[in-house]
Design a binder for these strands. Structure first.
Lengths: 241, 241
DNA sequence: GTCAAACATTATATCGATATTTGTTTGTTT
DNA sequence: AAACAAACAAATATCGATATAATGTTTGAC
């Protein structure tokens, strides 16, 4: 967990805007702590604990947690308080299935509708991602956060021209859920995989406007994470709860 | 809007469970008021107003509204309070596009995995729906609420065997959004349409396990609502905001 | 007559205290 | 010793009050 951050305009997120109000600060902080795994899946989120930790009132904490509920990062039942949403291999498989569906759909629409600005955005994002992926083998741990940011930016750029806001919304939710799982595998690589090659192939196919090929690569790209996570979770014994 | 309901265990919803706590009561009530159109799209949701109306504290209202935010039925920006999520024809078109995608996917998986219980559930739900659709032409207004409930139950039954919880979750969100629009057209029918025939075709194709046909019918079934809503919204001048 | 700045008003965001509920421990009974 | 019940402890849900920001209005200048 972090140090108190109330009224410090920090927070390098794009999805939850800038975080001006106290609720938004706590929302962003808890969200980040969940995504990063600092708050363990299934663990309780005691109000009083968070309240003193973030130095805010209890209602503020409750409201922040409430907003995380429908993001499905936090659960709440009856009168038993809040919990970090649990994870499981089965859940991850369902997330992956959905991501394949939505990502392919978004990619197809983006390819059909994208203009020159869209292409330029992809080129730029791919360049930034490539830069960090070159050094990734030697400096994996140090660059992990940077890579994750640029990876997301690249994938966002690919579908930026997709006109459907609902598709983008659901896609963002699933991406956040995925990253909870993927951070498990960031530190130690169990399944060999040339991620950069996948990204490059996706990059080429998209700019060539080859929808069918791009979608096929996207599917594989997402599907490959399953093996990685399955291996890690089996090894950790984290496959339930 | 409704009468106060705090601590009265009412609420005929299934999605938001039974509503035991005050927050859940307010959540369910506001949700229903939004879906039914009693709370107009884009209108403000002043805390004090709701507080006295539902006879609860302000924090309770805030928390209930917060949970509606990520359901995308309520919006909130900065320090400007809460609003009912706006509607627009463009938004509805995007919802429809997503629903076609997800409904077809869910239907396909359900057909592939469904067992006898699944079939039985469909038969029962279809029977219940048919009963009310027979009388619909003569008694449209009186049966509207009943029809809506059974219609949802039927469509839920069709995809009940789909194993992907995320798919079901997103589907439920979109269904709720849709119903905000569809209630506009429930009272007065502008575009002639034999809904029962569509339901029967969908019923037959699904039980025959003809995935391709069922998905095609499902697509058409959803797509047809666009014309209905487009006509109504143009006529109402509600196409923006 | 238009614009802008200070003020008043309204409503939001936030807080800490209180009342219920849940979970646990202790003590009693068969 | 096991099962049950009552009392205790911890944490949640809820409340109303206060501080703070946003909005609307009046006043004053150009």
């Amino acid at each position: 967990m972090n140090l108190p951050l109330h009224k410090s305009g920090a927070g390098a997120h794009d999805n939850p805007p800038s975080a001006k109000t106290a609720i938004e600060s706590v929302y962003a902080a808890v969200r980040e702590d969940i995504l990063s795994g600092r708050l363990k899946p299934g663990s309780r989120l005691p109000i009083e604990h968070l309240r003193s930790h973030y130095e805010v009132g209890s209602s503020t904490v409750r409201e922040a947690l409430s907003r995380l509920v429908s993001d499905t990062l936090v659960t709440t039942e009856g009168q038993r308080g809040f919990r970090v949403a649990p994870i499981s291999l089965a859940d991850f498989r369902e997330i992956v299935a959905m991501r394949k569906l939505l990502e392919a759909q978004a990619l197809g629409e983006a390819i059909a509708r994208g203009d020159d600005d869209w292409e330029a955005g992809i080129v730029a994002a791919f360049h930034r991602l490539s830069k960090v992926e070159e050094q990734l083998p030697t400096n994996a741990v140090r660059l992990a956060a940077d890579w994750e940011q640029r990876n997301q930016a690249f994938h966002d750029a690919l579908v930026a021209a997709c006109g459907n806001r609902w598709l983008m919304h659901f896609r963002a939710i699933l991406f956040a859920q995925s990253s909870r799982y993927l951070r498990i595998s960031l530190t130690k690589r169990t399944v060999p995989r040339d991620v950069h090659a996948e990204h490059e192939a996706l990059f080429q196919a998209t700019l060539a406007r080859d929808t069918e090929l791009a979608c096929r690569i996207s599917d594989q790209h997402i599907e490959l994470t399953v093996e990685v996570i399955a291996a890690r979770m089996a090894q950790h014994g984290t496959d339930d709860i």
